[in-house]
Structure formats: structure tokens, C-alpha cells
Design a protein around this nucleic acid. Structure first.
Length: 547
RNA sequence: UGGGGUGUCGCCAAGUGGUAAGGCACCGGGUUUUGAUCCCGGCAUUCGCAGGUUCGAAUCCUGCCACCCCAGCCA
């Protein structure tokens, strides 16, 4: 793990003896959607920092707005954090755990004349707030007496008012150049049952009032959040400076993650789900942790990625190639190899005894012979990849051509004698001859074909569905554009592939289909004996290179 | 046009006055029965721009410029 500005700051605080009790951080998601890879950055930071400095990290649900939140998300978030490999131990909390204390602090602010109940409508408040360049106007209710404010606030809590009728506001400065300080709302009335507190409350504290107080109560030593909250820091500090709480965490901001060809806003992701542009939050094309998990990406790859992107304050949009690199690197040593033909072209070996078959040994992992091998059935009828044959090969083409030869990986060298086409001119079959003495491992032919291709014997091939995923969007930065014309309609392609039987018989969840990519048995749609494979990522393609 | 931020290679990102780390990508080359993996090598005389201070600046000062965020009773 590199040392970013936050870790440097924490290390410095530790060295200076500013944090006696050890580091305490928190990951504070609102349960209103699924976690995505941008959250993973924050999770890896908060939990990672706690681990590295011998501290602890809370998982705290920021459930202050029952209108947006749902229990489903609470479960999904816990699952995702755990899947990523982090453990909050007994430090699972909810902002709602502190509702009573929050309320008491609110009364305290009222008693100290630091807050007042405003009876203006939301619209009136908005207008009086001024603009970015014009100062706001004080509310006519700004100087109500402590007694009146207290009675009003208690009345709000008791349910005497309708939604929006009253609101508790901090009394700060309506002329502040920072609009967040223009008497921000601390409590609003919402006659909505809360998923955890039921109908105990009909007033709910806002983020700005809640977050800093929860941080203080939990003794968070470093409150890490994203850049858009930088303007809120004065308010964070104001609240803690004006209530009787003896702990004041520093808020430190870092930039959120941007990733090319996808979006990271929960709003847009939720829209993709509700508009059925994807199959759900766990659609393998989604940048959600649930989606990436279903795609077949392992948590180690995501953690590696989060370590490589760093933590800074600069706006960023990371290239997809970095994520892909992390995914491939993680899978390279782990995934057993197998062969699958995605777009089959029939090859008939004219000199191979009709009806004869044999078994050819093939390593599960060429760099790890200890993993053993499987037997690949071989016969006179084979499938090869359609794109591994070219009638008019481009320069440096290393596969089959009319009159050319290639090696069938772990098998024989074949020679293309005849190209059979249908009436449309489409190639339907290649009639080839095999070199009997070229069998892999006992090759005495002396031939040196320039290429090696994968294949599957027709008589033993199993047809399965393979889902080929591509980027969700056609443009690198889709935000702010119309989904309909930026969405990549080729982001999912389903094909019927021919795979070797050993893959079907294996319990391995992930394979590298040689020369094609890494694939994962879809955990939802696979049936015993009839798996559906998701393409996790393609193999790196060095085809452009010379040599 | 008010406030808050950010600008170092195509993308991330070190660097905190001593003469531009690293990763990804890309480009060579080697090994290879996966055009994969692996291995070697290349890749910013320059740090948004312009001045200034200094023996010396990406790092300090001044002035510009560009981009991002903020006017929810969302977080």
C-alpha cells in the first residue's frame, strides 16, 4: 500500500501522540442503493487505514432519511463489504442509534440560542437563502425566544405539525459566502416510518447535523469523506464546536473515483436498474460490487485496483485497462485452463480413421504442472474458432489458411486442404489432413507451424451459453448525456459455445478459455450440468505487436 | 460574477528548495505448443501559463488561465 496524503496525515498524528486510543475510522453508506467500485475505494481506505495502523473501523449506516432507504440495501451493503474482505467486528452502527442523543443536542442548541424553529415554507426558505453571489435574508422567525423554540421543537417531535410546516435551523450567518452556513436545516418533519425506529420519530436530523455528531460519539479519529463535502466542513466543525461533546474528529476529504465508460452515481445506476437497461443491481456489466462479483471478478482484484489508483484530491477518471489488468493478474495463476470454441467452424480430418477417437492429455495450468491434467477427446470432426481461419490472411497471421498448417493445442498439426462453402459463399467446413506423427509430446514430424489454435472434438463437445460482456457505455464520460444514445447496445452478446467436457465436469467456478479470456460460471442462471458462462475479461491481445 | 477545491507523460500518481519515483497503456526485443503469462529495454530537459525570489524552483512569491464542487426540509 502506497502512502497517500491521508496515511501521511494519520502517521503524523500517531507520531505526534495526537491519537492515544488508536485510529478509529468509519465507512458510512446510506442504505439507498448498492455499493459500487467507487465505494470500494472508500472502504479500502477506511478499513485499510484502520488495519495498517492497528485501529478499528465502523460500518455505520447513515439512515437519516427514511424516504430513500430500504432494508434490502442494508443487507446488500454488509454482504459486499464482507465480500471485499473487511470485518467490522461488533462495530456495526446506524445513525438512527443516536436519534435520541441527536435530539438532545438539538435542544441544547436551542437553549444556547444557536438554533431556532423556522415556520417558513421550504420555498420561502429557498428564496431567502440568496444566491451564490447574493447574501441571504434572515428568517422572520430567527429571533424567537428560547422558550418558544423549545416548545415548537418539542411540538415537532410530538407530531403536532405536518411535514414541512416547521423546521429546525442552525443560527449561523445568512450572509456567509459559504451557502452551507446560511442557517442550515438541522431537523425536518417526515411522517414516514423508519426502517429501524418505526414510528418512534416523525422528525429526522439532516446529514450535516447527524454525521459529525455520530463521528464524535463513536470517537472517529479521522473522518474521511469525498471532496463534495469540503464546503460542509465549516458546518461539521460548527456543530461540534457548539454542542457539549468532548470529541471533535477532523474531516479529511479525498476525490471520488471516476472510471471510464461507466457511471458512479447511485442515481444513474438506480435508473439503469429501474429502466431495465440492465438485469438488476448485480448485472455483470454494472460497476457495482454485486455486479462485479457476478461477473466473476474476485475481491483481491478490486482491492489491488484500489491500491493502485491512489488517494488524492484531484479529479480523476481511471482507464478501464487498469481494472482489467488487475483482474487478469489476479486470475492468471488461479484459473485452470480449458478450451471453448465461441464461434465454431467445422474441421474434418480426412485422413483420421473414421469413427476413431482418442484422449489427449492437457495441463490444467501449464505453469503449474502439479495441478495435473485432464483428457481431451479427439476425433475426425472438430470445431475450431471461425476467426482462426482466414482465406486471405492479413500480414503476420499465425493461424490456419488455405494450404497452411497450424498446431491444434495439445493435439496434432493439421493442414488445410480444402475450403467448403455454402451457396452464399460462407465457409462451412474445412477439410484438413492431420500429421499422425505430430502428436503433442511425441512429435517426430519436424514441422514447425507458425501458430497454435484451440479446438474441441465434435463428438464430445458440450454446447453452453456464454455471455460476452463489454463496456456499458459507448462514451468514456457518460454523465450528463442521454442514456439512450450513450448506452452501448452491444454490451451483452450471448453465444452458444462448444466446450470440452472436462470443463463441464469440473467444480471450478472460473476458467481461462485458452486464447479467449477468463470466464465464470454464472451463479444465478447456471443449472447443474448446464452452466452459463460469463466472460470476466478477455485475454490481453498482443496481436498488434510485431515479431 | 461569491465561496471551496484541483492542475506533474495518453490514464492514475510520487515528489514538500537540490536538479522529475512507480503502475497502467503504448513501443521495441527475448522465452513460449495460449499472438496469454514471464523476462529485458524504451517512453516528461520538463511539472497549466507568465513573471519574480534563489547559486539552484514542480516545490517559495505574484498575476493570469482551465477544470470540478456548492444556492435539497438528499447524502
Amino acid at each position: 500500500m502506497g502512502t497517500d496524503f491521508i496515511r501521511q496525515r494519520i502517521g503524523g498524528d500517531l507520531d505526534a501522540g495526537n491519537v492515544e486510543g488508536g485510529i478509529v475510522t468509519r465507512f458510512p453508506p446510506e442504505p439507498n442503493g448498492y455499493l459500487h467500485i467507487g465505494h470500494a475505494k472508500s472502504i479500502c481506505l477506511n478499513f485499510g487505514v484502520a488495519e495498517e495502523f492497528g485501529g478499528v473501523c465502523y460500518l455505520r449506516f447513515d439512515d437519516t432519511n427514511p424516504a430513500n432507504e430500504d432494508e434490502e440495501y442494508v443487507h446488500a451493503i454488509q454482504r459486499d463489504v464482507r465480500w471485499l474482505g473487511f470485518d467490522w467486528g461488533d462495530r456495526l452502527t446506524y445513525a438512527s442509534d443516536y436519534f435520541e442523543q441527536l435530539y438532545q443536542f438539538a435542544e441544547e442548541l436551542v437553549r444556547d440560542e444557536k438554533a431556532f424553529v423556522d415556520s417558513q415554507s421550504a420555498e420561502e426558505i429557498r428564496i431567502a437563502r440568496g444566491t451564490l453571489t447574493k447574501p441571504g435574508q434572515d428568517s422572520p422567525y430567527r429571533s424567537r425566544s428560547v422558550e418558544e423554540n423549545l416548545e415548537l421543537l418539542q411540538g415537532m417531535r410530538a407530531g403536532q405539525y405536518a411535514d414541512g410546516e416547521q423546521v429546525l435551523r442552525a443560527r449561523i450567518d445568512m450572509a456567509s459566502p459559504n451557502v452551507n452556513l446560511r442557517d442550515p436545516v438541522l431537523y425536518r418533519i417526515r411522517h414516514i416510518p423508519h426502517q429501524r425506529t418505526g414510528d418512534t420519530w416523525c422528525i429526522y436530523p439532516t446529514y450535516d447535523f447527524t454525521h459529525c455528531v455520530c463521528d464524535a460519539l463513536e470517537g472517529i479519529t479521522h473522518s474521511l469523506c469525498t471532496l463534495e463535502f469540503e464546503d460542509h466542513r465549516p458546518l461539521y466543525d460548527w456543530v461540534l464546536d457548539n454542542i457539549n461533546v468532548n470529541f471533535h474528529p477532523p474531516q479529511i476529504e479525498f476525490s471520488r473515483l471516476g472510471l471510464e465508460y461507466t457511471v458512479m452515481s447511485k442515481r444513474l445506476l438506480a435508473q439503469l436498474v429501474s429502466d431495465a437497461r440492465v438485469s438488476g443491481w448485480d448485472d455483470p456489466r454494472m460497476p457495482t460490487l454485486a455486479g462485479m462479483r457476478r461477473r466473476g471478478i474476485r475481491p483481491a482484484a478490486i482491492r489491488d485496483f484500489c491500491g493502485r489508483i491512489g488517494v488524492t484530491k484531484s479529479d480523476n477518471r481511471v482507464e478501464m485497462s487498469l481494472l482489467e489488468f488487475c483482474v487478469r493478474q489476479d486470475l492468471e495463476a488461479v484459473a485452470p485452463r480449458g478450451m471453448a470454441v465461441l464461434d465454431p467452424l467445422l474441421v474434418t480430418l480426412t485422413n483420421y480413421p473414421e469413427g476413431q477417437t482418442e484422449e489427449l492429455g492437457a495441463a490444467w495450468h501449464p505453469q503449474q504442472p502439479e495441478r495435473g491434467e485432464r483428457q481431451m477427446p479427439f476425433g475426425a470432426a472438430l470445431y475450431i474458432e471461425r476467426e482462426d481461419f482466414a482465406e486471405e490472411p492479413p500480414p503476420k497471421y499465425r493461424r490456419l489458411t488455405p494450404g497452411g498448417m497450424v498446431r491444434l493445442r495439445y493435439g496434432y498439426i493439421i493442414h488445410c486442404d480444402e475450403v467448403v462453402k455454402d451457396t452464399e459463399g460462407r465457409v462451412t467446413e474445412l477439410r484438413c489432413s492431420y500429421v499422425a506423427e505430430s502428436r503433442s509430446g511425441s512429435d517426430t514430424s519436424g514441422l514447425k507451424p507458425k501458430g497454435v489454435i484451440h479446438w474441441v472434438a465434435v463428438h464430445a463437445a458440450v454446447q453452453v451459453e456464454v455471455r460476452l460482456y463489454d463496456r456499458l457505455f459507448k462514451v468514456a464520460a457518460p454523465e450528463g448525456q442521454d442514456l439512450t444514445d450513450t448506452l452501448n447496445d452491444a454490451s451483452l452478446r450471448s453465444v452458444q459455445a462448444q466446450v470440452e467436457p472436462a470443463i463441464i465436469a469440473s467444480d471450478e467456478p472460473r476458467f481461462q478459455f485458452e486464447r479467449v479470456g477468463y470466464f465464470f460460471k454464472d451463479p444465478v442462471d447456471s443449472i447443474a450440468g448446464s452452466p452459463v458462462f460469463n466472460r470476466i475479461v478477455t485475454l490481453r491481445d498482443g496481436r498488434a505487436k510485431g515479431r
